[in-house]
């Protein structure tokens, strides 16, 4: 019997400070063992438990694409009270990090084949959306999906994640990108405005389309009515949830909303599924 609590070992290969506040870092991890690297197959939207040995674990969405076989990437926000996120942020290149996963369900990749996909992201909840966009834009996969539209926003230009990548996507003809900030600065030449408002202007068609929405609760609250107005059905609106977790495999009893465990039955849910759950988030 496999021990579901034991992580595999990885090494920090690269660390990117993502934002001006310096509390968001992307860790590129490489596997220490080739066999374990080959066994680690994941789908967009899944997460893993990251272990700082001797400190603890925390669940983080996988931000790299399944097409990136050589490494995994995780973007981690440091919270003042977050034991593990602080320890992670204090790690150095070459440090060993435990990874347990992939865990949870994924975005509905098969269902999205042949369809247009709209991505709506806010702040640092953009990680698994980035994984999905990278995956869909990959030359081996691009033909499986229709038009791709991205609306992504952050509080300020300095808080946008993956800035280089966003520039690359903007330069492509393959994905329509709308990057916005709540408030720009003197160098900002892009859009200003909240994500729901920009989404309303962009007004993507609901025909043959699925929308993936990941952002802070306040963004979700104002985005859902816009999507409904645009004509998206609640079964075509897909989001990903966060909860405090320990085991990540549906055993330890803490991340449930009603009878559903966010770790095992989620983290990806359609808006339709969420409507059937009690309001306890």
């Amino acid at each position: 019997m496999k021990n579901p609590y034991r992580p595999i070992l990885t090494k920090i290969e690269k660390v990117t400070v993502e934002n001006e506040a310096k509390d968001l870092k992307t860790f590129q991890l490489v596997f220490c063992n080739e066999e374990e690297a080959n066994d680690f197959r994941f789908q967009c939207g899944q997460f893993a438990e990251l272990t700082v040995l001797g400190v603890g674990e925390c669940p983080i969405g996988i931000a790299s694409s399944p097409m990136d076989k050589a490494f995994l990437e995780f973007t981690v926000k440091r919270y003042p009270d977050g034991l593990v996120t602080n320890a992670l942020h204090n790690c150095r290149l070459g440090d060993k990090i435990g990874v347990r996963g992939p865990l949870g369900n994924s975005f509905p990749m098969e269902k999205m084949e042949g369809k247009n996909v709209v991505f709506v992201g806010g702040g640092f909840a953009f990680t698994t959306l980035r994984s999905t966009i990278k995956y869909m834009l990959h030359e081996d996969n691009r033909s499986k999906f229709g038009n791709l539209t991205l609306v992504y926003g952050a509080r300020s230009p300095g808080e946008l994640l993956y800035k280089e990548q966003l520039k690359e996507w903007e330069a492509l003809n393959d994905i329509e990108t709308h990057i916005t900030v709540d408030k720009g600065d003197e160098n900002w030449k892009g859009k200003e405005g909240f994500v729901p408002a920009v989404l309303d202007q962009v007004a993507p068609s609901p025909n043959n389309a699925v929308v993936l929405v990941c952002g802070p609760p306040i963004m979700l609250k104002f985005t859902l009515p816009v999507l409904t107005k645009l004509g998206f059905g609640s079964g075509e609106i897909v989001t990903s949830l966060e909860m405090r977790m320990k085991c990540g495999i549906g055993l330890c009893g803490r991340c449930n909303i009603g009878s559903k465990y966010v770790c095992r039955d989620g983290p990806v849910f359609t808006f339709e599924q969420l409507q059937a759950l009690p309001a306890e988030m």
Binding site: T51, L53, G54, V55, G56, K246, L251, C252, G253, R254
Partner: peptide, 13 residues
């Protein structure tokens, strides 16, 4: 049956 998972340091690990 709810449980927690806690890290404890040993002499070497």
């Amino acid at each position: 049956y709810c449980f927690d998972l806690v890290d404890e340091k040993t002499s070497t690990g």
